[in-house]
Design a protein around this nucleic acid. Sequence first.
RNA 1: GCCGAAGUGGCGGAAUUGGUAGACGCGCACGACUCAAAAUCGUGUUCCUUCGGGAGUGUGGGUUCGAUUCCCACCUUCGGUACCA
Length: 934
Amino acid sequence: MHALTLYYLKMADYNFKEIERKWQSYWDANQTYKTRIDHSKPKYYVLDMFPYPSGAGLHVGHPLGYIASDIVSRFKRLNGCNVLHPMGFDAFGLPAEQYAIQTGQHPAKTTDQNISRYKEQLLNIGFSYDWDTEVQTCAPDYYKWTQWIFLQLFESWYNQKEDRAESIETLIRILASDGNKNIKAACDEDTPLITAEDWNGYSEQEKAFLLLKYRLTYLAETTVNWCPALGTVLANDEVRDGLSVRGGHPVERKKMKQWSMRITAYADRLLEGLNRIDWTEALKEMQRNWIGKSFGCSVTFDVLDSDLKMTVFTTRADTIFGVTFMTIAPEHEMVDQLTTPDQKNAVRDYIETAKNRSERERMSDVKTVSGVFTGSYVIHPFSQDKIPIWIADYVLAAYGTGMVMGVPSSDTRDYAFASHFKIPIIPVQEGAHTDITNPDFDPKAGTMINSDFMNGLPVTEAIELATKRVEEKGIGEAQINFRLRDAVFGRQRYWGEPFPIYYVNEIPIPLPEDELPLILPEVDAYLPTETGDPPLGRASEWKYNEKYPYELSTMPGWAGSSWYLFRYMDPKNEKEFVSKEAQEYWQNVDLYIGGSEHATGHLMYSRFWTKFLYDRGFLSVDEPFKKLINQGMIQGRSNFVYRIKGTDQFVSYNLKDDHDVQALHVDVNIVDNDILDIEAFKNWSPDFKNATFILEDGKYICGNEVEKMSKSLYNVVNPDVIIENYGADTLRLYEMFLGPLEQSKPWNTHGIDGVSKFLRKFWRLFHDKNNQFNISEEKANDQELKILHKTIKKAIEDVDRYSFNTSVSNFMICVNELSSLKCNKREILEPLNIIISPYAPHITEELWSLMGYKDSIMNASYPEYNEMYIQEDSFEYPVSINGKLRTRIDFNLDIPREEMERRILASEVVQKWLSGKEPKKIIIVPRKIINVVV
RNA sequence: GCCGAAGUGGCGGAAUUGGUAGACGCGCACGACUCAAAAUCGUGUUCCUUCGGGAGUGUGGGUUCGAUUCCCACCUUCGGUACCA
């Protein structure tokens, strides 16, 4: 029998299996975690980022954040709050669809199986979720409202005068009475200027197309990674070296008409809102960079011998006299017109290679400078010089105007480009740090030279003056630019929300609200059609009223997750996505815990939708998450065996250097404390059936390394196995004990014994040698009260700063101290049991009921901390001499300073280190330290 | 490249506001109990040392009576990424 199993069979004292089963069914039967609106209590909303239910099930890394949020939920509840702590599933997504393509099984079916598995695993850990509030984004009664929100976005425009979204009706009224000359709106760049007469004379189709330019969700040409062989669009990370990661087929950049979200309308408000929420500065900084607000100026250059004009956006108008070339993005539509006949071939060749590189690729390859001359020139608006126009792939079509003025003396990318193609460089700044070839180069240093009217000015003043001159000349104006782009919202996939849109004469028409949800149809295969349409093209009769074709693409994964936090408040509501009453009570999320990989995706989109729904009066809050914590990743600890090359012989870790070996991953579940279970290894794979071993001390020692936890590296640890062997309470404590929530750290099952021992020690405080429950009603003494109250104090402080690892060690210290005092007094153990209950809910429920309570410990009150019990009247000062600790002296806290100094100097140790000299200074920091400077 | 985070014993980590570096736990060693083992309990455990001490929180500088903590430069690892003019 396995040593571990044997060990647990003998552990009869604390029977976690029975206790955990008992209390999990008690909570279920008694609806302990049922959440209701209760105006008599303050509300607290704790949310986990809901998981995507993958086929592999949960590994020990997943519950880390869930355990932390569960502790906070329980802590808040014990402190008198009404807590909403729900869980659900982000159930639409690619892996299920990929699996469906491979196996032909309906993704709904596999998703459902995966959800059941996840739920079972989550229930085993003893979370305080109210499962009645569960949501699944792929359920029609949920995505009905995702579609409904989409329709609200479709029926809205962004009025910049009011700085909020409004109904499209208000826009139509203005267009009919005034045209659009006075409208300030977030709209397409190519929106034409029209009068009221124009509008009123428009056909229905013309009106529809104009309105699309204003709607908050709209159809737009976007460039995508198109893979003809797979018949589908790929994400950036699915493309490498111009080939699809899956299958290695060629990928090309292709323009495609797709649904987009006008998130850019909210750029400023998304930026401003960051100042009002309690997220880490790091995360806010990431979002600020993502939004990327920059102040600059547009400048228009006339193209030589042509009517064409090139308009660039620059944040450095001051450097205009340093412009020695112009660059334009390879995919820019003006490229053709700018190319002269003799450059046609060169340009065509260049574009052919450049256009199929994804933006990600262009970025990761900064060292290669590439470009081609168009043959055309612009005229410098101030100097009238002739300036060549180049095409270069470091310029992106999607940002600014897709064109850049090249200033090699002030911009490092421009410099790299100019020196590569031997384009002249004109310095426009002089002074310290203005040499671009130097590592200490600072683009905003120095004063202007070679710059006509700006000569002698510092950079910031020069920018202002240049902008003014540009405006006076009528060739540009001060402008604010955002990095943020509108978000592509369509996916050429099956397993997502269908758009509630059908087409009449190419005009997208919204489905009437009362016909929602538009249910995802059945298809015969989850692949694109022969004509390259998305899978929904296979659904027969996928038409509105059997006549008008529905949209064939589906919504992206982030659609359902952008608003789910509100659905939990009122998950069964058939009339609204959330009732006013529920939303006004629960407001928004007080604490949100999840991975940092969502920093700029999910967290940006849900802020956008929340602001939109707020504008349209559907919500009373305009930010979804007040406080956010990113939990770190739990990494895997892989184990290795070493095979002597070309043989079936494996050599133990410390002897491997004597041989020519190959390291192979071995399943961590057949390794205990780096010692391989040889029999299990032989049975692990037929390849190792005849393996032989070179052992050390009779054991085979494995190597180890910290890597990502992944099935393919055989280092996945399943929480079910841990719960089976140690119990859920131990798992919960150990995950917290591992280290700070926000940091990444490796999982090593071996260390779990420590917390397991702690729980047994805790149990023994309440039990006698024969495991009979035994607590005393005797009054606690000062020493015991001091231990209790310093523990309460620290426990509260630790939850306040989400420091759960120190919290667990705090409990260990307390239990160790009480054990050595042999304290079994109710006055101490009862409050201690309450403060541990958020961490280890099962064992504490059991002890609570053994103490005679009939109700759940969840309905208890958190003990009050009393300063009185931990006050001290003396302090043992560490005494340093020149900053080095030499001795300790105990002082009463009310002793006068002179008396302290006298006694410090009188100390033998201090005398020795002074060796007759006078001390320069004696530093006494009350209750901290004494430092004698010699 | 850019943005963000992190580097502390054999290992996970602690030190909350510039004040005793290594709490707590794992591992290891020794001891008690035991016929024996497991469990349990106890002691020790940063490194070097001539046993006086000395060195030490990724590296090199700096500020300070005092730096894991603050400043400058660099190195390494991880996460994100849309070359943002």
